[in-house]
């Protein structure tokens, strides 16, 4: 086993090393993570019934209509039918919020509604409830093109996200871009590198055997290059989420996508 990994590791090392010396530009247009999946994984996403991510859609719908908190409200009390009120929301998030003078994502907005309007406790990041609600809200925009705003007040946050994306980090001294921009479409060991697009998030990941958020994925990537990950919901990841959403502009929202 050790020997096999040694060989494989060497091969990848050589592959990455070789490609690092080559200028960027392997990028062949904006591609959803979907296009990198095997026919079986695609099939799991294509059929709503086979897609295990739909469990989270169902859960989210129940929570949408469930009264919680001292104000005696459910999401539906103010926002009525999510199919109408939440349609398109996923395409413009994350977005700049002038009240907090920061970029917010859907998870943040859900918890803000809970604490401010519903007087309910915020949900923990990556909790079943927050995932289900995020999946449910984003699902209402399925098929619509990603179209985040990176103008005006959002500019510094977009730039911070871009800087994060291109910044080397961790023991491997690698930036997001080394895998997902410069080498997307190539194999790192047995792993086909995607562009790291977020249009299907939260995704049902075969590896996790559950749904997971964009920030969980960011943490995983950061750990993989042996860097200390930031907290889910941190400013760093909010800005990165904005930048990565912009990279995927025009891609259809696929939530809940199925990925390996």
């Amino acid at each position: 086993m050790g020997k096999r990994h040694l060989g494989a590791g060497l091969a990848v090392g050589a592959l990455l090393a070789a490609s690092l010396a080559v200028p960027a530009g392997a990028d062949d247009g904006i591609r959803s993570g979907y296009s990198y999946m095997t026919p079986e994984t695609k099939g799991m996403q294509d059929d709503d019934f086979q897609n295990p991510g739909m469990i989270w859609v169902d859960d989210g719908e129940k929570l949408w209509n469930t009264v919680d908190g001292k104000a005696g409200k459910a999401c539906a009390t103010c926002h009525k039918d999510a199919a109408t009120s939440m349609k398109g929301v996923a395409t413009v998030y994350p977005k700049y919020d002038p009240k907090i003078k920061k970029v917010k994502n859907i998870e943040w907005q859900v918890n803000n509604c809970r604490t401010e309007r519903m007087q309910a406790k915020p949900w923990k990041y990556e909790s079943g409830q927050l995932l289900a609600m995020t999946v449910y809200i984003r699902h209402q925009s399925r098929g619509m093109p990603m179209n985040v705003s990176v103008d005006g007040d959002a500019i510094p946050f977009f730039q911070a996200g871009e800087k994060f994306y291109n910044q080397r980090r961790g023991l491997l001294d690698m930036a997001c871009k080394h895998c997902h921009a410069d080498n997307a479409g190539k194999n790192a060991r047995a792993n086909l590198l995607s562009q790291g697009q977020t249009n299907g998030f939260p995704v049902y990941r075969l590896k996790w055997q559950k749904a997971g958020s964009t920030h969980r994925r960011f943490r995983g990537c950061n750990k993989q290059v042996r860097a200390t990950p930031y907290k889910a919901g941190s400013d760093e990841y909010m800005n990165l989420e904005l930048y990565v959403a912009w990279r995927g502009r025009g891609l259809p929202v696929e939530t809940p996508a199925v990925r390996n």
Partner: peptide, 26 residues
């Protein structure tokens, strides 16, 4: 650049060893 590449290769190897072990355990 060549030296750098070699260094990255070695570091990467370490990581891949770790990843492989983790994957098997997981």
């Amino acid at each position: 650049k060549t030296l750098e590449a070699q260094r990255i290769g070695r570091r990467d190897l370490m990581a891949m060893l770790g990843a492989g072990a983790v994957a098997a355990m997981g």
